[in-house]
Simulated scan of single mutants.
Amino acid sequence: MPSPTSPNLSRTEWAAVAVALQDTARCGCTAEAIDASSGSLRRLTQFLFGRHGPTPLADPRLEAVRRFVCASHVGSGASSDLAKALTDHGFSQAQIDALDLLSR
């Protein structure tokens, strides 16, 4: 793991950033895309409107990266809440700041 002041990311973390940026290009990172919940309401919305948001990543740490990058991209206030999730997953403030910059 990188030092606390290093904004370095692992290959899998970079892959999660790439997925998030693809999601922003494909679906614009709507609130649905940021939330990416998998409940019956989401399935009903997909059935009725044909809109398919991104599939959540299996690894909770990488999913936190994807959601943060999406929220930061759209300038959502949720990005500050999602930054807490990144901290909980062991990301340093330097890494979070770097992700925020990358997503704009």
Rank of each mutant, 00 (worst) to 15 (best):
residue 79 S to T: 11
residue 76 S to H: 05
residue 26 R to A: 15
residue 31 A to P: 00
residue 15 A to K: 11
residue 88 D to A: 06
residue 24 T to K: 08
residue 3 S to K: 13
residue 97 D to R: 07
residue 45 T to I: 06
residue 17 V to W: 01
residue 88 D to T: 05
residue 52 H to Q: 13
residue 47 F to V: 07
residue 82 L to K: 00
residue 28 G to N: 11
residue 85 A to K: 13
residue 22 Q to W: 10
residue 19 V to S: 14
residue 27 C to R: 13
residue 5 T to G: 12
residue 62 L to H: 14
residue 25 A to W: 12
residue 89 H to T: 03
residue 44 L to H: 05
residue 5 T to P: 00
residue 18 A to S: 15
residue 89 H to Q: 09
residue 17 V to D: 01
residue 96 I to R: 03
residue 55 T to H: 14
residue 82 L to R: 02
residue 90 G to I: 14
residue 91 F to K: 03
residue 41 L to R: 04
residue 83 A to E: 12
residue 93 Q to W: 13
residue 37 S to E: 11
residue 46 Q to W: 10
residue 62 L to C: 09
residue 34 I to T: 07
residue 56 P to Y: 11
residue 13 E to T: 12
residue 51 R to C: 00
residue 43 R to I: 01
residue 53 G to V: 02
residue 12 T to N: 15
residue 6 S to K: 00
residue 61 R to G: 00
residue 25 A to D: 13
residue 47 F to P: 00
residue 64 A to N: 09
residue 46 Q to V: 11
residue 15 A to L: 07
residue 10 S to H: 12
residue 56 P to M: 13
residue 60 P to L: 02
residue 72 S to M: 02
residue 60 P to C: 10
residue 44 L to I: 08
residue 29 C to S: 09
residue 41 L to V: 11
residue 82 L to P: 02
residue 66 R to Q: 11
residue 81 D to W: 04
residue 51 R to P: 00
residue 78 A to I: 06
residue 48 L to Q: 08
residue 80 S to M: 04
residue 65 V to C: 04
residue 23 D to V: 07
residue 14 W to M: 08
residue 6 S to N: 14
residue 28 G to H: 00
residue 29 C to N: 05
residue 97 D to L: 01
residue 42 R to W: 11
residue 13 E to V: 14
residue 82 L to G: 04
residue 22 Q to Y: 12
residue 50 G to N: 02
residue 20 A to W: 03
residue 49 F to L: 14
residue 74 V to E: 05
residue 22 Q to M: 13
residue 48 L to I: 11
residue 7 P to N: 09
residue 37 S to Y: 08
residue 36 A to H: 05
residue 80 S to P: 02
residue 91 F to C: 09
residue 29 C to F: 02
residue 79 S to R: 14
residue 22 Q to F: 10
residue 75 G to R: 04
residue 12 T to C: 07
residue 86 L to G: 05
residue 8 N to D: 15
residue 88 D to W: 00
residue 23 D to Q: 04
residue 93 Q to G: 15
residue 97 D to E: 11
residue 50 G to Y: 00
residue 63 E to Y: 04
residue 74 V to F: 02
residue 77 G to C: 03
residue 79 S to V: 15
residue 26 R to C: 02
residue 49 F to M: 09
residue 51 R to K: 04
residue 34 I to P: 09
residue 23 D to I: 04
residue 61 R to F: 01
residue 61 R to N: 03
residue 52 H to F: 06
residue 55 T to F: 08
residue 3 S to C: 06
residue 43 R to S: 06
residue 56 P to V: 09
residue 71 A to N: 08
residue 12 T to E: 15
residue 5 T to M: 03
residue 87 T to L: 12
residue 4 P to D: 07
residue 45 T to G: 10
residue 87 T to E: 10
residue 36 A to K: 07
residue 31 A to E: 11
residue 27 C to N: 14
residue 95 Q to I: 07
residue 16 A to E: 01
residue 85 A to S: 14
residue 83 A to P: 03
residue 30 T to N: 03
residue 29 C to W: 01
residue 59 D to H: 07
residue 73 H to L: 07
residue 97 D to P: 06
residue 19 V to C: 10
residue 81 D to G: 15
residue 45 T to V: 08
residue 5 T to C: 05
residue 97 D to V: 11
residue 8 N to T: 07
residue 48 L to N: 12
residue 28 G to A: 09
